[in-house]
Amino acid sequence: MSSVTTTQAASLSPQAPQSVWRHWLRKIEWRIFLLPLIGLLLWQGWKLLAESGYYADFIVPHPSTVWARLTERWADGSIVTHVATTLREALSGLFIASLIATALGYIIARVKIFDYLLTPYLIFLQAIPVIAVSPLIIIWFGSGLASKVVIAAMITWFPMMIATIVGIRNVSPNLREMMRANAATRWQIFRHLEIPSAMPELFGGLKIAVTLSVVGAAVGEFVSARQGLGYLVMYGRGISDTPTVVLAVLMLTFVSLVLYSLVSVLEASLLNWRKAGKP
């Protein structure tokens, strides 16, 4: 059958040269142009709003003012310091939370008694609003790196744990039996079956957690800090410089987006098998 279609295609193209154009037009990914277009529209909308005269620069700062703040802070290097601080806090928190949450999630998924004993307390723990207890965390852990790491961990562990539980529970019982029939050890089942099988769910959890980790770090910085993008928000507010506030918020968004994209790229390269067999 495939030979029939190829001969048809080969005989059609020289007879119809305009189909070459159509072929190229179809091949271009129009989405690539659409994506920056929407961004440009938002930018222009913001500019129009700022230039309309209805709002003072203090309420809606002009994009160019925000841009000026960025170049100033880029020149003196302070923006890099703030980004690096928030990034370090967020990623350290996420790392620690991932270790604890995957370990907890695994034993809850595998051992019934742990599920029964731990789950109610863990849900109780998650029900505590992190933002409300963040002043307490600052009191306990100081206003340096540690408190922000703790807050970032507190906000990210839950999605990671749920992802692990779902991932491990979804491991096919048939594949478990196949591994047992092959005299696999517990470690081999963990290494060759459970981890790869739970990967899609783990990446789902990581995608949620990675953006939340930035939120966690910023929340900690809101309460008490001397550096970081959350601190920059509060600093800008303190000196009534709205452009700095907007800059810090945009940078927080940017950091989250970059981290999320990195996780997505890693996911796509590690889980390339999921594309198999799909048109």
Binding site: N174, E177, M178, N182, H192, L193, R274
Partner: peptide
């Protein structure tokens, strides 16, 4: 290990290639 079992469902690991699936018992 000297007793092998083949199931009604193929029970292949979707994340492993054909080669890697066949290789599994030897790896274990």
């Amino acid at each position: 290990r000297q007793i092998s079992m083949i199931f009604q469902k193929d029970n292949l690991m979707p994340w492993r290639t054909v080669y890697e699936n066949i290789e599994l018992p030897l790896q274990l």
